[in-house]
Amino acid sequence: MTKRYDTADAALDGLLSDGMSIAAGGFGLCGIPELLIAAIHKAGTRELTIASNNCGVDGFGLGILLDARQIRKMISSYVGENAEFMRQYLSGELELEFNPQGTLAERMRAGGAGIPGFYTRTGVGTVIAEGKELKEFDGETYLLERGLVMDLAIVKAWKADESGNLVFRKTARNFNVPAATCGRVCVAEVEEIVPAGSLDPDCIHLPGIYVHRIVQGPHEKRIEQRTVSKG
């Protein structure tokens, strides 16, 4: 049974439903599953809970789902660069669960590894710790964070083989790998699909056992902050 689909719409067929939870990979605008996000926007799926480091920018990435009021709740660590994200949160239109970046990545990784929770010092003594269990280890206070298991994971990789083994490039590995593992179903969009056996096993960042569907397509890969030197 092939994992390869011709379009992002086809790759998500039968997987979307109102009120579902989605883990989305990417860091800023680096390595975001822009084709799958556009397909979710086109499908009109609503009341979504999305776990992602950030929410794209105004009018691009997850930002298009915000603009269309398709997101009910964000589980994320960074609001910056998206004025609509900030506006919806401050006006009470959007629920937001703040997570430190490392905590969010570990919550995804833990969920994918079957670990229901873990203790961390990050956030102790701040609003992050409110309502969470605290426990002392070796004279230090830690708080309990729950692992994340989401209905769907959408990620973006550089290369895949036909078995779904994925290779990411640079910063795209920050959240794509843990996001992919914590979804009950994982759909990956890639820049190139190569024959099985052509990837160096030592260079595979995510084994194909985690990946259920793959789709190849062109990517805009928009730059979030362009900085150039004077001519």
Rank of each mutant, 00 (worst) to 15 (best):
R109H: 13
G111P: 01
G111R: 00
G112A: 13
A113I: 02
A113F: 13
G114S: 06
G114T: 07
I115W: 02
P116L: 08
G117S: 14
Y119K: 11
Y119V: 10
R121S: 12
R121F: 02
T122H: 11
G123L: 08
V124M: 01
G125L: 09
G125H: 09
G125E: 11
T126F: 10
T126D: 03
T126N: 04
V127C: 09
V127T: 13
I128N: 11
K132M: 14
E133S: 05
E133H: 06
E133N: 05
L134G: 12
L134T: 15
K135C: 08
K135N: 10
K135W: 04
E136R: 13
E136N: 10
E136T: 15
D138E: 13
G139P: 12
E140V: 12
E140R: 10
E140M: 10
E140K: 13
T141W: 05
T141Y: 04
Y142N: 03
L143W: 00
L143G: 09
L143Y: 00
L144P: 01
E145R: 13
E145V: 15
E145G: 00
E145I: 15
R146Y: 06
G147P: 02
G147V: 08
G147F: 02
G147D: 04
L148C: 07
V149I: 13
V149G: 03
M150F: 05
L152Y: 11
I154W: 01
I154L: 08
V155Y: 04
V155P: 02
V155I: 12
K156D: 00
A157S: 07
W158R: 04
W158T: 05
K159A: 08
A160S: 15
D161M: 03
E162W: 08
E162V: 10
S163V: 01
S163T: 11
S163P: 00
G164D: 06
G164S: 03
N165V: 04
N165E: 06
L166Q: 05
F168S: 04
K170S: 09
K170Q: 08
K170M: 04
T171I: 15
A172W: 00
A172H: 07
A172C: 02
R173W: 01
R173H: 08
R173C: 07
N174I: 14
N174R: 09
